[in-house]
Design a protein around this nucleic acid. Structure first.
Length: 715
DNA sequence: TCTATGGTGATTTTT
DNA sequence: TCACCATAGA
């Protein structure tokens, strides 16, 4: 990517006067670059104060990246600038105006796990049959209502079942209110209603934000759209960046139609297409374009590159899933032998279950790998236990936290006892903590239970006192130390308990880190830490240092890129998935998923399938995915997937061998290099050879540059 | 309170 | 097939 300056379309988007803009940004077309440059332009050339800009993303990762890049562009702190996720910014609004939003000052955020427990308890409290009303379904119902912008008072049930579900919603919502906790969907809904109901606040924010920018707009749902529209008011200039072809979260409530709706709701919006791709070879782009052209109702877009044609796309037909995995592992080993690091390989698949066979074979090959998208750090049971102690200490009314730790570690408080407390709380409209204390005063428990309960109350109250004056990490440390969690997990046999203890220690580190990095706001450090634990469940510690193959689902690959991509399991019923292949809308989303997967590849794309595969214990024969047939034949090589051939287990190589220039050079795509001025970067491509060898490098700090090889150091 | 057993059901996931 | 849950029994 030689992109020292913006291309024409990018420049138009960046340097436009304040106005509504719809940027259709194809994969790898530099959309983050456009977003950050746009903000920088508005601030430095249009004279906007950072105070007047609002930028919304979907993930924390994107928000952080944007802020970092912006700081290096503007050379000034960006604290005043509101950059964050929909949820994060909503949270900020609710904290600042919790009274108007009718929330307690110390309200806590529930994650979906907590939410499910809360829903389950609501169903039980209503004496409903869990078989007829599965908690998952009720949870989905509640979230769906909220995402459509409907508070509990606004839902119109249309049948008997809906009636019951609404009752669950009501009970659940009342329980949340009582405990002072809110769920993810509430963050958006409540902040939306806050602005809607309070004219003064709405006027204030509508006046304040002169420019509003939204990333990944195709992923927005109804409430997010309404939220944005309300915040923009009549004066705010809104710029949305998105790609209808990469909309893969429809099943989660994302409304692809929001993009079309935007042009209607925001008058005179300028549409700009970013179609020049700086990531993939021409052949990969042509194939992806051909595939996505099969979809109907697109905004329309054709990716192109000024770069090389590159390799053809290799399709491999394995005779079973082991053979498929063998083939992939062999290619990876081959690349490794040619000097490419393992981390330039990514294996993508439709469903998580597919990773197992791949992992087994990679292990046989002795190839290190990393599977993305497992349990996140803050979702681990032991971490949630420790956080629940902190939550209960901060807010004794937090019933979710109470339920979680009342008998963790086990302290002789049984189900009977807890049910007594729950029932009493329900009948007297008390929180669990208050109900427990009242019952103790009334001597309602057997002697043994009472001792256990009293020691629990003592523990929480003592901790509340002792940690009041401590710095955050000491608070966390004290709570973990005195809760007995460490002893509890020490009893767990095997490595599991040890890992848990290590994780608890890591939590103390995280608190320490958080203390150092936190910007000051009006929350106490503990409150801020708990909120960020719920909202910023950082996927994992950045152990990017380890060189290993990346395994992940197609969904989690969105936004990433890799020199070599293997799209595994390209079979009917698996991809497109059988649950999605009969509904035309869902099928198109599957195709978009395939498009997303293909466009992750920079240099070389492999698409593989297995003629037979074991699924749920049964041997299944699937046809090759229709998506393979939608690729132009002249762009495809390798095993003829349209005719059946019997093949030996050992897969023969038909992969690309790196070019002469690449072999002669000490540099290769995907390599980390160092430059004395520009700092660290990743090699994207080699050009020329011998003394004339030039290397395209994407630097972390300064973007992409092409340099003489002699100026670079391998790392 | 821990452990064994059987039934069930099985895309995709961020906040 | 297998992993997760709920439930029963020690």
């Amino acid at each position: 990517m030689i992109q020292n300056s913006l291309n024409e379309a990018q420049r138009q988007a960046v340097e436009a006067p304040l106005r509504h803009q719809l940027i259709l940004a194809g994969a790898g077309s530099g959309k983050t670059r456009v977003l950050t440059h746009r903000i920088a332009w508005l601030v430095s050339k249009e004279g906007l104060s950072p105070f007047e800009v609002l930028a919304v993303t979907f993930t924390n990762k994107a928000a952080n990246e944007m802020r970092t890049r912006l700081e290096s562009l503007l050379h000034m702190p960006t604290r005043q600038l509101w950059i964050g996720t929909f949820h994060g910014l909503s949270h900020k609004l609710l904290r600042a105006h919790h009274e108007e939003a009718q929330l307690p000052a110390l309200f806590q955020i529930m994650d979906s796990d907590d939410q499910l427990r809360m829903v389950r308890r609501s169903i039980q409290a209503l004496n409903l049959d869990e078989d007829r009303f599965p908690p998952k379904e009720a949870q989905w119902f509640i979230n769906h209502q909220k995402e459509e912008g409907l508070e509990v008072t606004e839902v119109q049930p249309f049948d008997a079942k809906g009636d019951q579900l609404l009752k669950i919603y009501q009970t659940y919502q009342a329980a949340c209110q009582k405990a002072g906790v809110i769920d993810f969907a509430d963050l958006l809904l409540k902040s939306y209603k806050l602005l809607l109901k309070h004219d003064d606040l709405r006027a204030h924010y509508q006046n304040r934000f002169r420019a509003l920018l939204v990333d990944e707009f195709q992923d927005t749902n109804t409430i997010q759209y309404a939220w944005l529209k309300l915040l923009a008011g009549l004066k705010g200039a809104v710029m949305i960046v998105g790609d209808d072809d990469q909309s893969i979260y429809g099943w989660r409530g994302a409304r692809i139609e929001n993009i079309q709706r935007f042009s209607k709701d925001f008058a005179n919006a300028h549409v700009i297409r970013l179609e020049q791709n700086y990531r993939s070879t021409s052949n990969i782009l042509k194939a992806a374009n051909a595939l996505i052209a099969q979809n109907t109702g697109r905004m329309g877009k054709n990716l192109w590159t000024s770069g090389k044609d590159g390799e053809l796309i290799t399709i491999y037909a394995g005779f079973n899933e082991q053979d498929e995995a063998y083939y992939i592992a062999s290619r990876i080993r081959e690349f490794k032998n040619h000097g490419f690091p393992l981390k330039s390989n990514a294996i993508l698949y439709r469903s998580n279950a597919q990773s197992r066979v791949l992992e087994e074979i990679l292990m046989q090959f002795g190839i290190p790998y990393r599977v993305y998208g497992g349990l996140r750090f803050f979702d681990r049971a032991e971490i949630k236990d420790a956080l629940s102690y902190l939550r209960l200490i901060m807010n004794h009314d937090d019933d979710t936290a109470f339920e979680r730790i009342i008998n963790t570690p086990t302290r002789g408080i049984g189900d009977r006892t807890i049910t007594t407390v729950r029932d009493y709380a329900k009948h007297h409209q008390l929180t669990l903590w208050n109900a427990l204390n009242t019952l103790i005063l009334q001597k309602q428990f057997a002697a043994r239970s009472e001792t256990a309960l009293l020691s629990f109350i003592q523990l929480i109250e003592n901790l509340s006192k002792t940690i009041a004056t401590l710095p955050l990490h000491k608070q966390v440390e004290a709570v973990i130390g005195q809760s007995g969690l460490i002893e509890h997990f020490r009893k767990e046999k095997g490595e599991k308990g040890l890992t848990r203890i290590e994780n608890l220690e890591e939590l103390i580190n995280a608190a320490h880190q958080f203390e150092k990095e936190r910007e000051d706001d009006d929350m106490t450090p503990l409150a801020a830490f708990l909120a960020s634990a719920a909202l910023e469940s950082s996927n994992e510690q950045a152990d990017a240092s380890e060189d290993c193959v990346q395994l992940m689902t197609l969904h989690s690959a969105k936004g990433l890129e890799f020199p070599f991509v293997y799209l595994a399991g390209c079979e009917e019923e698996l991809f497109p998935h059988y649950l999605s292949m009969h509904d035309p809308k869902a099928l198109e989303e599957e195709r978009r998923l395939c498009y997303v997967g293909m466009t992750r590849a920079m240099e070389k794309l492999f698409m593989t399938y297995a003629e037979t595969r074991r699924i749920h214990g049964k041997e299944m024969y699937h046809k090759p995915s229709r998506f393979l047939n939608e690729l132009p034949e002249e762009l495809v090589q390798g095993v003829k997937f349209r005719t059946k051939v019997t093949r030996p287990m050992t897969a023969k190589s038909d992969a690309n061998i790196p070019s002469r220039a690449e072999l002669d050079s000490q540099f290769y795509p995907g390599q980390t290099v160092h430059h004395h001025v520009f700092g660290e970067g990743t090699v994207i491509q080699l050009e020329g050879d011998g003394d004339d060898l030039k290397v395209k490098v994407r630097f972390k700090k300064v973007g992409t540059k092409t340099l003489m090889a002699s100026f670079l150091k391998a790392k």
